[in-house]
Design a protein around this nucleic acid. Sequence first.
DNA 1: CTTTAACCGAGACGGTACGTCGAGTCTTTCT
DNA 2: AGAAAGACTCGACGTACCGTCTCGGTTAAAG
Lengths: 203, 203, 203, 203
Amino acid sequence: MVTKPAKAAPDTARRSERSRRAIYDAALALVGEVGYPRTTIEGIAARAGVGKQTIYRWWGSKADVLLEAFLDLAAAPAAEPYAIPDTGDLAADIKGVLRATVDQMTDPRFDAPARALAAEGVVDAEAGRRFTAALMEPNIQLYVDRLRAAQEAGQVRAGIDPRIALEFFISPLAQRWLQHTGPISYEYTDTLVDYALYGLAPR
Amino acid sequence: MVTKPAKAAPDTARRSERSRRAIYDAALALVGEVGYPRTTIEGIAARAGVGKQTIYRWWGSKADVLLEAFLDLAAAPAAEPYAIPDTGDLAADIKGVLRATVDQMTDPRFDAPARALAAEGVVDAEAGRRFTAALMEPNIQLYVDRLRAAQEAGQVRAGIDPRIALEFFISPLAQRWLQHTGPISYEYTDTLVDYALYGLAPR
Amino acid sequence: MVTKPAKAAPDTARRSERSRRAIYDAALALVGEVGYPRTTIEGIAARAGVGKQTIYRWWGSKADVLLEAFLDLAAAPAAEPYAIPDTGDLAADIKGVLRATVDQMTDPRFDAPARALAAEGVVDAEAGRRFTAALMEPNIQLYVDRLRAAQEAGQVRAGIDPRIALEFFISPLAQRWLQHTGPISYEYTDTLVDYALYGLAPR
Amino acid sequence: MVTKPAKAAPDTARRSERSRRAIYDAALALVGEVGYPRTTIEGIAARAGVGKQTIYRWWGSKADVLLEAFLDLAAAPAAEPYAIPDTGDLAADIKGVLRATVDQMTDPRFDAPARALAAEGVVDAEAGRRFTAALMEPNIQLYVDRLRAAQEAGQVRAGIDPRIALEFFISPLAQRWLQHTGPISYEYTDTLVDYALYGLAPR
DNA sequence: CTTTAACCGAGACGGTACGTCGAGTCTTTCT
DNA sequence: AGAAAGACTCGACGTACCGTCTCGGTTAAAG
């Protein structure tokens, strides 16, 4: 088994926390201000008051930096206790979560870096899977859980695969957001839930 | 009204058809071989045996070149008579179209450039809308038409908005493809149609 | 015979005279102002208002740039009709030329770049031979000619090799200049000539 | 009186002899192997198995390290009893010393570091004077002494300044070596002595 | 049937960013 | 406190492409 002929991993213990934070901040700020393509590693380094080498030492690419910065951002402020509530009213519960998602997509602090990562993931399968795993998978699991609970409560047909069913809520919204194929609003997501649940409910 | 403060549009009549084709071919080949980000205008020019200026004269960006090349590719071989058939069996008709879409997504000749354009569109709203308009809107319209026909035939509830309904077929597939969030297969798209139509059908 | 697997030589005809001059000027100015080691290619490019690539396209190294700049400087103002006069008085003739050399070595416009090139040549044999051939060989030939004339006139012994004899005039001065081993003055060079000619003259 | 506004001189007593030797060895080896410009402080430290700081603590520059390493090398093996013999035959005595010098210049263990130091000295006057004082001055003094003895013995004219006269032996050889202006051989140095002494001898 | 203006291949140009190397400083841990 | 180790900021390296700009040489429409 080959450990890789790489550069001999740097010593994580000696890593400068200060620099790491500054880099996250600079990266997110720049992506927000000038967009992902015009965000450069040199720009991040300069803004963070950091040597380029410090970035190259710890990350492999601009996308890597941004992914970590983004994860850090999401993890930081106890951002989301994030569980889909279970009030018994499946429609209302999911509508609530989707409205929160709509809010996020509208927030430029989230929008710009999230798009950047998504775009990277579209073109680079490996990166895509990493980003998906880190950013989306946890949320998806919540939907699966809530839908299974609804199935047990007899609100969703037994034969339905929750992994597929949740895509009726998430994917149309995601596509409108990513590909600008249509407007995004509470009304829209509410409708989505109504249409979709109609098909999932038992007769 | 000024159409553009640009360089005085070049004379289309004198344009070299030869070069245009060579550029399309080179662009598609390069995107397929090295991927979109490593495809450069200089590379396309060199491979096409063309001066850089010839590209800059007729297109505004790498994305533009690729979009046109892609449209040309799609338009070329009488590619798709492309209308959703109306056999009276809505489920079967849509399943058929989605299976064709799955085939496309699996074809690397389509996959690489389409991803490249999609990624560009994710990050650049303007480009995104252009690509969407040129590549997706026509297809979407076909779904709208077919769904309206189904509504008139009483197979879909009257209150349903076809613009939203079609997203239940398209968006989950699109997201799995774009974001590598799951496998793509005929079985999957068939299931999609079954689940969704169940909700759209009248009670 | 291999022509070298190099980068395909650029087209000299299209070369920008403007840039070339600007680069010469910037290089000489910088060497004069901050010294050779602190003169950088980036600095030259910036000062000349030129892209780095334009330097790398036409020269292989900082030393190359400076050598050409220096040669250009020397060639420019009909700098030296440079022949050692033959008044019949060998001592006086050579003293005159050496005094001119002393003047040059005292002129900072000459001193800084000449030292830089010399230093490069000390360490890099190939460069050294190039510099020697371009800068010193022509002058050396003048000494040889003058000494041969003196031999024919019977002022220098017949057996003497002029290639070696001229080193008695040039080398001590060169060493004092290059290695700071002693002061340089007209008086010094005059003495040099007196001592040396004493040994070269016939008894 | 302040000797230096520096960092408070380190305590020489605690200095690691081991490291010092390792650094000398590494420096000389590297200069010999890859040349002076490609010899780096980091490289020396790594090769010597020494921290960079240990070098910066005790020396001020790459040139300093090399100079000391070189002096150490020269001093080490009781290298040269080094006095010019006085057999009464001035020509023979000097020819002998010069032949030894030729041998040194031909020895790559001497050649590489000596050139490096010389080159540094050409460009940096301060360094040049230091190197000259440490490496050349002692030898020069020997020539002065021997020439004075010859003057007293009546073999050299009384008016001759030995400081200048010795340059006829040393400088041409030095220049050929430093600037690659000609081949170096016993025959050459012998000729030098013959030509020069001819001029120095009394009539 | 010639002019003549535009497109064309080619590629040099001024730039920006890349990813790497080394300088010299600083900090941690061991001896 | 010196030393090994190595992360840090900084500046330069040499390269790759960008988009603009000539330079001849075709080439198709206007004279």
